[in-house]
């Protein structure tokens, strides 16, 4: 009774389980501005969805969750459209380049080794820095408002960085983010995140959020809204491309996930609104570190079965 058949995945699932999964991931997405693919895709694979279908249907679901989340954040004035669009343009360029890079890496062999190690090191590094930095922020100024003070309070290196930023051409005012920086910055960083996201096969929310906080110096709440706005467009593109070239989008699965995640995203935004910038950052840092530990465990623990279905077929 509570099962539905997924025609593309070729399996049936419990409606309540999928609804719940969607809800939890939507909640995270509304709070932190991440797509949640890092969590959802492995869980879907665990319940028997083929890897390629899991990833593609999840991006379809993220379209709904990020629409819901972006709308909620928009009402709170947390979406910097100009910044989001520039990051997006960079992301598309980087994503296209990343696909080529991965082809070269695969041809050279050892691609998985490089990807895994980079991923673990980066998550570990970013997570630890964010955790430490927001902990300092929370200790020093318990009353601090969700903003850039903590980033600005960082050591001397930061001011050199700030001076460098001012020297770049095409300085533009980003009102929502409350800053004036060169339009090259979001373009370049967007491209870098796009390359990494394509190589690692993830949406990139995890990398984009710290980049916006530390390198683009945006206030945490605006980061969350803008990240969701940007993720929305990325996932629209991925969904259509996956459906068109690989037939891997299972619409029934996406619908069930959507039902949960669009509600979750609304609650997530409400929860995020009540948290301070540093509190948000420390929670996200914990989550990033958790993913890092999970990946490390996957690399260190002997698998039960020493073959796996290839994702691309």
């Amino acid at each position: 009774m509570w099962h539905m058949y997924l025609p593309i995945a070729g399996n049936s699932v419990n409606v309540i389980t999928i609804f719940g999964l969607g809800g939890v991931v939507g909640l995270l997405s509304g709070i932190f501005g991440v797509g949640g693919g890092f969590l959802m895709t492995p869980l879907l694979i665990m319940i028997g969805i083929p890897p390629t279908v899991a990833a593609a249907s999840d991006s379809n679901q993220i379209v709904g969750a990020s629409t819901s989340g972006t709308l909620a954040h928009w009402r709170l004035g947390n979406v910097d459209v100009k910044m989001g669009l520039l990051l997006l343009v960079g992301g598309v360029i980087g994503g296209t380049g990343g696909v080529q890079v991965i082809k070269v890496l695969r041809a050279m062999g050892n691609a998985d080794f490089l990807i895994n190690i980079t991923y673990v090191l980066m998550l570990g590094g970013v997570g630890s820095y964010m955790f430490w930095e927001s902990l300092q922020g929370l200790k020093q100024e318990p009353e601090t408002s969700p903003s850039r003070e903590t980033a600005a309070a960082a050591p001397k290196k930061e001011s050199t960085y700030a001076r460098l930023l001012k020297m770049l051409p095409w300085q533009t005012k980003f009102e929502k983010s409350g800053s004036e920086i060169s339009i090259l910055l979001p373009l370049v960083f967007g491209t870098l995140v796009g390359v990494l996201a394509a190589i690692m096969g993830v949406g990139g929310g995890f990398i984009m959020v710290p980049v916006m906080v530390y390198l683009l110096r945006m206030p945490m709440h605006v980061v969350v809204g803008t990240s969701l706005f940007q993720i929305l467009f990325t996932c629209v593109n991925v969904t259509i491309m996956q459906s068109y070239s690989n037939h891997t989008v299972d619409f029934v699965l996406a619908l069930l996930l959507l039902a949960g995640s669009t509600i979750g995203a609304q609650f997530g935004t409400a929860v995020g609104k009540k948290l301070k910038g540093d509190q948000l950052k420390i929670l996200l840092a914990s989550l990033v570190l958790l993913v890092c530990v999970k990946m490390l465990a996957g690399l260190l623990i002997t698998p039960d079965i020493l073959v796996a279905l290839k994702g691309g077929h």
């Binding site: 629409t67 819901s68 629209v236 996406a254 959507l258 039902a259």
Partner: peptide, 8 residues
């Protein structure tokens, strides 16, 4: 699939 997701 995208339109339905956005509508939802």
């Amino acid at each position: 699939a995208v339109l339905v997701a956005i509508a939802a």
